[in-house]
C-alpha cells in the first residue's frame, strides 16, 4: 500500500502557533457500496492523531468515520518557541500508521 502522505504546517498567529495536519487518507465509513460489485467497502479511517511538542503530548484527537477524507486537523499551541519540535503521528483502524515532524520557526 502506498505510503500515506502526512504534512504539517506550523503557522504563527500573534503569540500562539497553529498546527495544521493534512493526511492523505480515504476515511471510508464502511457504509458506502462499490458501484460495480454492490459490495460494501470496508471501513477504513484514522482513529487517533497525536500532537507532541518537544516530546510532550499536548493534544490527542480521536476521529470517527464522520471526518472527511484527507482530513485536515488543526490545534493551537501557546508557548511554542522557535526551534521547538512538533511531532504528529496517527493510526487508523486497520493498524496503518504514519507521522511527521516539523520545527517551529
Amino acid at each position: 500500500m502506498a505510503e500515506r502522505l502526512t504534512k504539517v504546517k506550523v503557522k504563527k498567529l500573534g503569540d500562539k502557533h497553529q498546527v495544521l495536519v493534512l493526511i492523505n487518507h480515504p476515511m471510508e465509513t464502511g457504509q458506502r457500496k462499490d458501484k460495480k460489485t454492490g459490495e460494501k467497502i470496508p471501513a477504513h479511517f484514522i482513529e487517533t492523531i497525536t500532537f507532541e511538542l518537544n516530546g510532550n503530548k499536548v493534544a490527542e484527537a480521536s476521529l470517527g468515520s464522520g471526518v472527511s477524507k484527507n482530513p485536515l486537523t488543526g490545534v493551537e499551541l501557546d508557548g511554542a518557541k522557535p526551534g521547538d519540535t512538533i511531532k504528529v503521528s496517527w493510526t487508523d483502524n486497520k493498524g496503518e500508521s504514519g507521522g511527521t515532524e516539523a520545527t517551529v520557526k
Partner: peptide
Amino acid sequence: PLTTAVHLNGAKGFYSTRIK
C-alpha cells in the same frame, strides 16, 4: 453523530477539522 473529539493537554482551546 460523534464525528471527532480532541483531548487537550497543554494546547489551547481550539480545534479545527472537516467533517462529513
